Measured scan of single mutants.
Amino acid sequence: MQRVNMIMAESPGLITICLLGYLLSAECTVFLDHENANKILNRPKRYNSGKLEEFVQGNLERECMEEKCSFEEAREVFENTERTTEFWKQYVDGDQCESNPCLNGGSCKDDINSYECWCPFGFEGKNCELDVTCNIKNGRCEQFCKNSADNKVVCSCTEGYRLAENQKSCEPAVPFPCGRVSVSQTSKLTRAETVFPDVDYVNSTEAETILDNITQSTQSFNDFTRVVGGEDAKPGQFPWQVVLNGKVDAFCGGSIVNEKWIVTAAHCVETGVKITVVAGEHNIEETEHTEQKRNVIRIIPHHNYNAAINKYNHDIALLELDEPLVLNSYVTPICIADKEYTNIFLKFGSGYVSGWGRVFHKGRSALVLQYLRVPLVDRATCLRSTKFTIYNNMFCAGFHEGGRDSCQGDSGGPHVTEVEGTSFLTGIISWGEECAMKGKYGIYTKVSRYVNWIKEKTKLT
């Protein structure tokens, strides 16, 4: 034993070699072989497995989906700052455009905790909710729209109204504003409101030439003092309507412009014939205590009207009353817009006519005020429907199939267009061939041609 100890002390290297040989010859039971080890760690190889990531292109799944990435790591994937920024906006807080917040056709661009709407022409605001041009839906104005110097929408209202708090709607500024039905039992019968379409306001006024200088022999019209197929109006439903009495009662109609003036057809009036105007009328054979009678003290036909040349060209006249009318729910003026808007309103496509005229061709006159909704007829169809001249200051309205029309005794009465609950004068009943005849239409004086003249002559002093 002493000898062994001496050998170990003198030859430590020998001992180490012996131990190493023993270990190498022993069977290893701690580690699995290569094949079995792979069965336990069965993990798919990654895209760049075996390579240094710093030297390969980034992978979106590896960089940002398996674990949260930084902007720089995302930049490695896209290799483009702009594309990385677009991805980053949604990656950080989701897609803010998912709810489609942009209105009126706006395009949404996502941002971090926010979004941006790219608005089409005519709109602005956070969600493109603000109209900035009158060309689109009248700028959301209830009545009139004008573009300011910086191309912003400025709404306005006709006389007797003021802008509401929203700067879009119009509200009454006087007790009985024009064009409004205020009798409670008839307010439910107000005709369907007309909503502004998209309009090209630059070209809204037709490029028409008034044929002022045409000389033409007097034409022989049949029954051209021209509501057939209409309905009984309720008291106060058309408070701007008046009836004219002269040699015979209810020979023509008219509309209240203001307390002192009536507008009617020029062919209705004769110099030297006494005319009485009755406002607030409903049943011409009954006294309903809503009527107001006034005498006409002055007749002003349009300066281009000449019955000797043509009885229905420039067929418009103004009547001055001896005493002002007292405005109330049964006696209310009709609204008159400017030339541009009167023309736009007419193009809405349908209007209402009213009167006490004959209820059928050569038949009896109506006792109760009649009204009828009539569609506008395109000019080409209008011209083809008659052998008589249709001037540019006239328009056609009615039904091709016949059966409904204005008729004798309705002449001078109103053709009105309702705009968001307020009625505007767009025409004056003038003439036609018979009444409600198939293929024939009622012919009306186009008020847009005469609004400046009306307003100039009827100013209240």
Rank of each mutant, 00 (worst) to 15 (best):
V183E: 08
S217M: 12
F348T: 14
A37Y: 15
C268V: 01
T276D: 05
Q96F: 13
F121Y: 07
I284M: 05
V353G: 02
G432I: 05
K455D: 03
L24F: 11
C141N: 00
N80W: 04
N393E: 12
R379E: 15
L327W: 09
R180D: 01
S187N: 04
P177L: 01
D93C: 08
N166A: 03
N138L: 11
S423P: 02
W453F: 06
T342P: 00
T287V: 13
D249I: 05
V183K: 03
R449H: 15
S204H: 08
D232R: 10
C155W: 00
W356G: 04
L23D: 02
A37H: 15
F87H: 15
T215Q: 03
I40A: 15
K68S: 07
D198P: 06
I390P: 14
F196K: 09
E288D: 12
C28Q: 02
V77D: 15
F360M: 13
F121A: 08
L32I: 11
R162E: 09
A149I: 09
H415W: 03
W453Q: 00
E340T: 15
F31D: 08
L24P: 01
C268G: 00
F395R: 01
N100D: 07
Y441L: 13
P239C: 01
L346T: 13
H314C: 03
D131K: 03
D410C: 14
C28E: 01
D110L: 15
N166E: 03
E129Q: 11
D131E: 12
N343W: 02
V30S: 15
C108L: 03
Q90S: 14
E116P: 05
N104D: 03
Q241R: 04
N135E: 10
M437S: 05
S255A: 14
H282N: 13
M6Y: 08
F399G: 10
E418M: 15
D405F: 14
F196S: 10
W118D: 14
G272F: 04
R404L: 09
Q237M: 07
G432K: 13
T190C: 13
D232E: 08
P12M: 11
G363L: 11
S148C: 06
V202T: 09
V269K: 01
E142T: 10
T16A: 12
L367E: 14
E76M: 15
P235W: 06
D95R: 15
Y312Q: 08
L211M: 09
G421I: 02
I15V: 05
Q167Y: 08
E340P: 12
M8C: 14
S182P: 07
G94A: 12
T186G: 10
W356C: 06
V181N: 06
D93V: 14
I275M: 05
V30K: 14
E208T: 13
C102Q: 01
T215R: 07
T271Q: 08
K45H: 11
L376E: 03
C141M: 00
T194W: 12
T422C: 07
S114F: 03
K89Y: 05
V77P: 15
D150M: 07
W240M: 00
R43Y: 02
K455P: 01
E76V: 15
A397K: 03
A149L: 06
V92L: 08
T389W: 14
K39D: 15
E193H: 11
E281G: 13
A207V: 04
Q90P: 09
N295P: 03
N113P: 14
G355H: 11
A149W: 04
E124F: 09
V451D: 02
V154I: 07
T133L: 03
Y441I: 12
V181P: 06
V227N: 12
G58R: 05
E193D: 10
N310R: 08
P375Q: 04
K455G: 05
R373N: 14
E67M: 10
F224M: 12
G125E: 03
V154H: 07
R298T: 05
M6I: 05
W88L: 12
S182E: 09
G229D: 10
A279R: 00
K440P: 05
W453A: 01
E61Q: 12
P177Q: 01
S350Y: 08
P12V: 07
I428K: 00
D111N: 11
C69G: 09
Q219C: 14
Q90V: 06
E72H: 15
E418F: 08
G230H: 11
I7H: 13
R404F: 08
G236Q: 05
E79G: 12
G280R: 02
F251E: 07
L376A: 05
S204E: 07
C252K: 00
L24I: 05
T194H: 13
H400S: 13
P101K: 12
T81Y: 06
S11N: 08
Q143C: 00
K440D: 13
P120I: 06
S255F: 01
I334K: 00
G272I: 09
